[in-house]
């Protein structure tokens, strides 16, 4: 059975696209047939983060308008089997995503045997963000340890549980919290909200914490989802998230200030 998962946040620039790319690549690497859809119409970026920008011929809106088939528009990842990317359109027409059109694409992906359909939401609470969450069975709420991000997450949770199709049918969308750009040093010094406080305020089960890490920028520079960087803390933290999502018992990591080892101090 396919599951539709929206990656959303309300606020922009918190790490939705980074998370969508990592999460979908992780699921695919575990053998699940996964499609990741960029809902950010007009501001396509997922293709760049996943390194397929030069292979975009048709996009999501072309498929909705019947100008291309889904098969033509889906880009198969060359590094990870089972991974497919559906790029956003660069059109400026805000109404390009229709409810019927989006539903048809999602249903076609389900019929094609996709296990997971990941919807990378744009920022805001406008049409694109609404369409990204409307058909979701589950939601990954991406939050930064910062007041406006936490507030926006709460707001998007309200929308999710009242305006999605699941909500309209009296069901709940399963929620997962992912806190990104977490800096234990700054939490320790008292100028960053701690993950416990965020979890308490939002009361959403914590799926994982991604540390602030330079490797995220390096990964996006190279067009390789950071989860493929097995050396990096962010990559490892994303892999943990995928494992936990699939039901594995994995301890949370990278939550505390790294103790500088003697050798690291000496040579680091």
């Amino acid at each position: 059975m396919s599951r539709v998962i929206v990656v959303t946040s309300g606020k922009g620039g918190v790490g939705k696209t980074t998370t969508s790319a990592a999460f979908s690549a992780g699921l695919a690497s575990k053998g699940y047939k996964t499609a990741v859809i960029d809902f950010d119409v007009g501001l396509r970026n997922l293709d760049l983060i996943m390194g397929v920008e030069r292979r975009v011929v048709y996009d999501f809106v072309n498929v909705i308008n019947g100008e291309a088939t889904l098969r033509q528009a889906l880009i198969k990842d060359k590094r990870v089997d089972n991974l497919y990317i559906l790029p956003a359109s660069q059109t400026r027409d805000k109404d390009a995503l229709t409810e019927e059109g989006v539903e048809n694409v999602i249903n076609d992906l389900k019929d094609d045997g996709f296990d997971y359909i990941i919807c990378d939401s744009p920022a805001g609470i406008e049409k694109g963000a609404f369409m990204a969450l409307y058909f979701a069975d589950e939601a990954i709420i991406v939050t930064n340890p910062e007041v406006s991000s936490v507030r926006d997450s709460d707001r998007i949770l309200g929308i999710l549980q009242s305006k999605s199709r699941a909500a309209e049918e009296g069901n709940v969308v399963k929620e997962h919290l992912v806190i990104t750009r977490y800096s234990p040093e700054r939490v320790d010094s008292g100028d960053m909200i701690s993950l416990d406080d965020i979890v308490e305020i939002l009361s959403v089960p914590l799926l994982g914490v991604i540390p602030e890490s330079g490797s995220v920028l390096q990964a996006s520079n190279s067009g390789i989802p950071v989860i493929m960087d097995k050396e990096s803390r962010a990559g490892q933290a994303y892999m943990d998230i995928v494992g936990r999502f699939l039901g594995e018992k994995i301890e949370h990591r990278f939550l505390d200030v790294e103790k500088q080892g003697f050798f690291k101090k000496l040579f680091g």
């Binding site: 007041v147 936490v150 507030r151 709460d154 707001r155 309200g158 929308i159 009242s162 305006k163 939490v187 010094s189 008292g190 100028d191 960053m192 909200i193 701690s194 406080d197 305020i201």
Partner: peptide, 26 residues
């Protein structure tokens, strides 16, 4: 320094409680 993170938490709790109470307009 401890105060700013604590302050952030307190402000968020009050604000969010209020927004929930007023139904978020939703």
């Amino acid at each position: 320094k401890k105060n700013t993170a604590t302050l952030a938490k307190e402000r968020l709790q009050i604000l969010i409680a209020h927004e929930h109470a007023s139904g978020n307009g939703l």
